[in-house]
């Protein structure tokens, strides 16, 4: 009880101090701050839209790539892999989560970005270039690179939690499907995936949370340009990166408080996303109300 209260108090204190610090920017720009995209420290005009856009797009991209791969890994580890490689492989994947993000960033700059620039982006533009998503110059760094790096960083999280969720499915569910004449895959689909929907949602949300808040690696590969471009090849900027990059050099009061306001937005964005996630989980688990009675 006391802990719960103190945590709430701490959160409120955090919000209070952030909002006070952001007040000059809030008063100056009002709602425009959220919907305009000029970021000009010299003229002291600030709009956060490019950063919000960058965070949302890079995270969405990361999920798009990471979720199917992670589920594949988790299903393999929990259901298909031969017994003797399950443990070592799971351990290896969990190890990936422990690598500091700056290391991912370095690898992104020196390994992934050049590879994307010379191999992947020309390929995409050749075959999918009719889509605005894959048009424009090849820089290497940019939204696509950030999305891929983020996806690699959240795969360990999503896959190891999903794996545990799958392992927690009672064997009587699998046997129910098998006894009906389901093949191995059908058993997985019918008994395992259905039963663990809620938990997998949780895993995905945790991954999303990590992607949204990730700072270092993204800053190193996204290009850090406050612009909104439909092309995934173009550089972008995220909320977390702009705070990390510009906080130390933010001289003006308005400049500083604009950065703090971005922090406030980041905070509420995570809150809203968590809210949506909880709602979805609530809906899913409501459909499957109660446990199997015994």
């Amino acid at each position: 009880m006391l802990t719960a209260l103190s945590v709430t108090a701490l959160t409120l204190l955090l919000i209070y101090s952030m909002v006070t610090n952001a007040l000059p920017a809030i008063q100056k720009f009002g709602w425009h701050f959220l919907f305009t995209s000029t970021w000009d420290p010299v003229k002291e005009i600030f709009g956060a839209l490019p950063f919000i856009y960058g965070t949302l797009v890079s995270s969405a991209l990361a999920l798009l790539i990471a979720v199917p791969i992670s589920l594949g890994i988790a299903i393999y580890l929990a259901e298909l892999a031969p017994q003797f490689i399950r443990q070592p492989l799971s351990f290896l994947i969990e190890l990936l989560a422990a690598i500091p993000s700056v290391v991912y960033g370095f690898w992104g700059i020196f390994g992934l970005a050049p590879f994307l620039r010379t191999a992947v982006q020309p390929f995409l533009s050749k075959y999918l270039g009719f889509l605005p998503l894959f048009q424009g110059q090849f820089f290497g760094v940019g939204m696509l690179t950030a999305g891929i790096i983020l996806s690699i960083m959240i795969i360990p999280t999503i896959s190891s939690i999903s794996r545990e969720v799958f392992l927690a499915v009672p064997s009587n569910q699998r046997e129910a499907a098998t006894a009906l004449g389901a093949t191995r895959w059908e058993t997985i689909r019918l008994a395992v995936l259905g039963y663990s929907k809620t938990g997998v949602w949780g895993a995905v949300i945790l991954g999303l949370g990590r992607a949204i808040g990730e700072t270092m690696a993204v800053t190193m590969v996204i290009g850090n340009r406050p612009q909104i471009s439909v092309s995934l090849f173009a550089p972008g900027y995220t909320m977390a990166s702009v705070i990390a990059n510009e906080f130390t050099e933010a001289t003006g009061k308005l400049y500083l408080s604009s950065l703090v306001e971005i922090g406030v937005i980041l905070f509420f964005l995570t809150l809203i996303i968590n809210g949506i996630a909880r709602f979805l989980i609530w809906k899913v688990s409501n459909k499957a109300k109660g446990r199997i009675r015994e």
Binding site: A177, A179, L180, L190, G194, Y195, I292
Partner: peptide, 29 residues
Amino acid sequence: RRRIGMVFQRPNPFPVLSIYDNVAAGLKL
């Protein structure tokens, strides 16, 4: 297993499926 069905000790319907879909599960397979 399709020709020799089995009913288990503990009722084990699929919790995410509706009553209808539980019955139809094997048919859909």
